[in-house]
Computed example of a mutant assay.
Amino acid sequence: MPPAILEALVPLDLMQPQGVDAAEAASSMFSGFRNYVLARTDVSVATLYNAQSGLFRATVRHGGSPEQAAELDPRIRSFDLAGVFALTEPGHGSDIAGGLATTARRDGDDWVIDGQKRWIGGADTADVLTVFARDTADALIKAFLVPRTADGVGLRTITGKVSLRPMQNAVVTLDGVRVPASARLLQVNGWADVARILRVMRSDVAWIAAGLQAGALDAAVRYVREREQFGRPVGGFQLVQEKLARMLANLTSSLGMIVQLSARQDAGEYLDENSALAKLQTARLARETVALAREVVGGNGILLENDVARFFADAEAVYSYEGTHEINSLIVGRALTGVSAFL
């Protein structure tokens, strides 16, 4: 990720820009449209910014005590304190709720953390890693702000990705990492609290999925207006226009769903099934939208120099992160039937 990206974004103070009052800036609608606009430009840029403004900030605001949130939130907004969300592990992704293996044990006034985390975006440049670990005393999940440079912390960048190529993800190893009691986020005392945080984050990802579709549509329309075949621009062919219309329909329906979701959240209604439904539907439609964009661009749609190819590849990452289609479907299914099908 070029350093110039954050160097340009941070001074804009997009978490609370000048002229926007604090209540609006803190709303789901405002953060949603911020994610939408960033993702319309580039999904890696949106993911990088949301790692700070969404994942890390939401974890501190909803997982920390009021005192912790009040102290840290201004530093998070200014990027004076950069952090990331470290939940998933090499052996546990979709089953992380019951399978989380990283441990934390109390030792006097400190906590000692052991384990591994995987797919941690932005870990290589973060000041702190928000590490979720299982307390060996009560088996409940707790959260800790672990300095990236602490003794016992190791990072290895994951290479060979086809999606979100500029966004660096890492495997994080924690070997006897010692942090003070003040590093624990005091409102995370079990999986229910982690789920409460994830409920907010899934709506962020749904907005990113919509922005991705807008970017793919922009790129496809730009291409078909300029590309000529059979003596005229391909944008004038009926089958191409039909695909563009379907792309716009997918984008419009995605926006309609997530605007309604954010309106409900801003009214105080936070339901797992609502955010899960929005994430699974917008990510599913994003997959179809980018495939249609790739079709109208033809063979050039697989070239990295083409914006369509970038959105096409990135849709695969968005489809999986912050809850796979299958897991989100089971959350919705549980709400519909009253029966959990997870096990």
Results as ranks from 00 to 15, higher is better:
residue 137 A to H: 14
residue 139 A to E: 14
residue 144 F to N: 05
residue 144 F to I: 03
residue 145 L to T: 00
residue 149 T to D: 15
residue 149 T to N: 09
residue 150 A to I: 04
residue 150 A to M: 14
residue 154 G to K: 12
residue 160 G to S: 02
residue 162 V to N: 13
residue 162 V to L: 10
residue 163 S to T: 14
residue 165 R to D: 04
residue 165 R to A: 03
residue 167 M to D: 05
residue 170 A to F: 07
residue 174 L to I: 11
residue 175 D to S: 14
residue 178 R to H: 03
residue 179 V to T: 08
residue 181 A to W: 06
residue 191 W to D: 07
residue 196 R to S: 05
residue 202 R to V: 02
residue 202 R to D: 02
residue 203 S to H: 15
residue 204 D to Q: 06
residue 204 D to A: 02
residue 205 V to Y: 04
residue 205 V to I: 11
residue 206 A to E: 00
residue 216 A to L: 09
residue 217 L to H: 03
residue 217 L to S: 00
residue 219 A to F: 03
residue 220 A to M: 04
residue 223 Y to V: 14
residue 225 R to L: 15
residue 225 R to P: 01
residue 227 R to E: 11
residue 228 E to K: 15
residue 229 Q to I: 12
residue 230 F to D: 12
residue 230 F to V: 05
residue 230 F to H: 10
residue 232 R to W: 09
residue 236 G to M: 15
residue 236 G to W: 13
residue 241 Q to C: 02
residue 241 Q to L: 13
residue 246 R to P: 00
residue 247 M to R: 01
residue 248 L to S: 11
residue 252 T to S: 12
residue 252 T to Y: 08
residue 258 I to E: 00
residue 260 Q to W: 07
residue 263 A to R: 15
residue 264 R to W: 07
residue 266 D to E: 03
residue 270 Y to I: 03
residue 274 N to C: 06
residue 274 N to S: 13
